[in-house]
């Protein structure tokens, strides 16, 4: 049961990673990162069946942090949209070289 959960978690994590690598829309990218975080959460929950409840506590912590992260991330994306009129990452190229 645990190993199946871990495999699902790994698959989810990889899907998230691939999403980050292939997409250019900042919001989609951010959603993929959230997917990665939640994949890890799944691992934590599964592992805490093996090692006790520390993993579950960590999941709560991660969810809290992810919420804060989402608030900041979306605010930043709005700020970018205001300046550039787009949320396409590949068109943010003022800083380079």
């Amino acid at each position: 049961m645990i190993s199946e959960a871990l495999v699902v978690s790994a698959v989810l994590f990889v899907i998230g990673t691939i999403g980050v690598l292939t997409r250019k829309n900042a919001i989609v990218l951010f959603m993929c990162v959230e997917l990665m975080l939640n994949a890890v959460n799944l691992s934590f929950v599964a592992l805490s069946k093996l090692h006790g409840n520390a993993g579950q506590v960590f999941v709560i912590l991660v969810m809290t942090v992810a919420a804060a992260e989402a608030a900041i991330g979306l605010a930043l994306v709005i700020a970018v949209f205001r300046h550039f009129g787009t949320v396409d990452l590949s068109s943010l190229r003022l800083l380079k070289g």
Binding site: T17, V20, L21, R23, K24, L29, L89, S90, L92, R93, L94, L95, K96, G97
Partner: peptide, 21 residues
Amino acid sequence: AQWVSAQVQVGDASRYVWVVA
């Protein structure tokens, strides 16, 4: 050095993630 950083540091974060990966 300028040439190299111009090639690598293209400013496109959706490419930087590839390097991280």
